[in-house]
């Protein structure tokens, strides 16, 4: 279970401090599919970064499966994220000098997955890219790169998957394709938190953020 209690977060830009999140309270149960929606600058990515332990709140706490991750050190959060989380970023972040398979293998090796090569190929099969395992990122399309990022996020079988606008730079067909893959993974019992500003992609429990505040919640 994920518990977010009165979380505040602000950033300093030059001499000005800008508060991005204003006292967020949120509870996400195990196995839920949660979609965060809202316009640009509403705080979706910031909230996801806090949930993934990439950043820490200025105030409030985040407890995941009984562990207050906001109190962990940077290194401890890295290790926690490694074991418990799959992260799909907004931009196409693959390592350019590694092949598709090697990019997926990174996580598998880190988390000491048995038969990491087979596991990586299996993850690539789930996203429909097993045949392109030996290619390099520069030889793939945007949609394919994002699917590799999904394979990399699921290869070690994490409990939670966080996807920060993974469809932002894709065409409609690819957007739908990515969401379908995420739903398929959710059906395997994972907790999925997806951020998107495309309202038609929002699924299941939908939480709307505006100016760093939760203004509404609905189910679809």
């Amino acid at each position: 279970m994920i518990l977010v209690e009165n979380v505040h977060k602000s950033y300093v830009y030059g001499k000005q401090r800008s508060e991005v999140l204003h006292g967020i309270n949120l509870k996400i149960n195990k196995g839920e599919f949660v979609t965060l929606t809202g316009p640009s600058g509403s705080g979706k990515s910031t909230l996801l970064n806090l949930l993934a332990g990439i950043d820490v709140p200025d105030q409030g706490k985040i407890v995941i499966d009984g562990k207050e991750i906001s109190k962990l050190s940077n290194e401890e959060r890295t290790k926690w994220r490694r074991e418990n989380l799959g992260y799909i970023p907004q931009f196409f972040y693959l390592i350019p000098f590694l092949s598709v398979l090697e990019n997926v293998e990174i996580t598998a090796r880190l988390t000491k997955v048995n038969n990491f090569k087979e596991a990586s190929l299996e993850a690539l099969e789930k996203v429909g890219l097993k045949d392109k395992a030996k290619r390099f990122p520069s030889e793939l399309s945007g949609g394919e790169i994002q699917r590799v990022a999904i394979a990399r996020a699921i290869v070690h079988n994490p409990k939670i998957i966080i996807a920060d606008e993974p469809t932002a730079f894709l065409d409609l067909k690819n957007k739908q394709n990515i969401v379908e893959i995420l739903l398929k993974i959710w059906n395997e019992g994972k907790t999925i938190i997806l951020a998107t500003h495309d309202s038609f992609l929002a699924k299941k429990r939908i939480i709307e953020l505006v100016d760093g505040r939760i203004i509404g919640e609905k189910y679809a």
């Binding site: 990439i54 290194e75 890295t78 290790k79 994220r81 490694r82 074991e83 992260y87 970023p89 972040y93 693959l94 390592i95 350019p96 000098f97 990174i106 996580t107 880190l110 988390t111 990399r152």
Partner: peptide, 15 residues
């Protein structure tokens, strides 16, 4: 830096 950032994101420690 970006590549290293990804590695850290995926769970590589600084060490």
């Amino acid at each position: 830096i970006k590549e290293i950032g990804i590695l850290i994101l995926l769970g590589y420690t600084t060490r």
